[in-house]
Design a protein around this nucleic acid. Sequence first.
RNA 1: GGUCAGUUGGUGAAACGGUUAACACAUCGCCCUCUCAAGGCGACACUCACGGGUUCGAAUCCCGUACUGAUCACCA
Length: 479
Amino acid sequence: MKKVRTRFAPSPTGYMHIGNLRTALYAYLIAKKDDGDFILRIEDTDQGRLVEGAVDIIYNTLKQCGLSHDEGPDVGGNYGPYVQSDRMRSGIYYEYAHKLVEMGKAHVCFCKEEDIEEQRKAAGDSFYFVDPCKLLSKEEVEKRIADGEAYVIRLNVEPEGTTSFDDEVYGRITVENKTLDEMVLLKSDGFPTYNFANVIDDHMMDITDVVRGNEYLSSTPKYNLIYQAFGWDIPRYIHCPPVMKDEHQKLSKRNGDASFQDLLAKGYLPEAILNYIALLGWAPSEDREIYSLDELAKAFDVKRIGTTGAIFDIDKLTWMNGVYLRSMDMEKYYDLVKPYIQEVIGEGYDYKLVADAIHDRVNILSEIRDMITFFKEPGEYDNELFFNKKAKTDAEVAKTILPIVYDCLSSLETWNNESIFTVLSEKAKELGYKNITMMYPMQVALSSRSVAPGGATAIAEILGKDESLRRIRNGIDRL
RNA sequence: GGUCAGUUGGUGAAACGGUUAACACAUCGCCCUCUCAAGGCGACACUCACGGGUUCGAAUCCCGUACUGAUCACCA
């Protein structure tokens, strides 16, 4: 069996959006499942749409995701060049388009765009019309070309019969040939159209599995016609359903939807993003959702790709990101979280203790800031905050509790979570209070919040004895 | 408008003609608990867009309707 080769063929038009990334992921997984090759090819036949830095974004994204390509513009390979605008490639397209003309499978067309439009209109729904340029003699064509007249090369399509292809996801699809137009292969500027370049490249690069979005489903019969004209083997087609923003719209840059870069900036992890989007349009056969990239490659099965657009649910991604954060190696977690902590509270505190305190609470890294600002400086708060139904506390109760807490702690020698908790809970027991009645007012005094990451005692440990006592003192003074 | 495709809960989804229609997110309850989380437990589709048919039996097969999407460029 031939070695599986898939390709990711983006056009460098800006940010990498999620749908695109998922297509890249699937292409990667399909290749890696069978120890095949994953190739990166840059499709830039449209010179008007080049965006500066866009290619770097593609490289960076693939790298951050661990979707390493075996061949590509930057890493080389035996099937280069891997950029369509490369002069060497342009020559190839030109040559093959003309070869098709010689074979009688395509023809030179001098029609103006308006002429074509008119004829299409006249053809109506049947769509098919006979291009008058098809009837030109070889001599005349050559003469007009020699005279410098602009021309394009169009594929010849016979209106009779049907064209079918098998898609691994959507099954067998058949269309009538008369609904297919005689597509342009080579544009008047000498560049190939995207569709043509695609077929040539996929064939020349020995691509066995064509993985792309299902918006290409309709044009696939035309691709097949080109393969057939050359007598080439037709690849396996794997069309993926779209990733949607909502019921009606696809996720897109134009709608201002989050790109991969945006998600990273918000503090989502590449592994989590990849894991999540793998599940958008594909379901594993076992009852499980958390997969590393390698595990995905093993579990992936083209047959289990769905046919319906899947709505991108940021809530589920957020949950999954939290799962990754909670289950990752602690050292790695500390490294990840350290810059965020230091940015907010600076030096002076044990950032690992802070990291431990928020470990079970953080889902996305950008949430950390709001969670821990009070360590640096307690915020303004109203005495109403001392009210807590479950703790049976309010400002009045706090007035009696806080001094007790203060006394217990000011004489405490060993300052850590456990020792603080022990002394306070013993005191609570002695006085007949529930722990929470002691702890809640303390938490408010320490954090200026009704909810805080970690219990009052954990916060006190991080703050240190002096600062903790100072904040409790302030709490007492204001009551 | 033509053509092609799709339709299981708020969301992702499983189900290879016979199950109480999995599982996960979200939501809501309860438990745990020094708050919030995390974790544990439970609730949440009398039904699989709708209407016919085939079958002893249909979310699963067939036909039609509705709705949704894609496509119909010298854009990629």
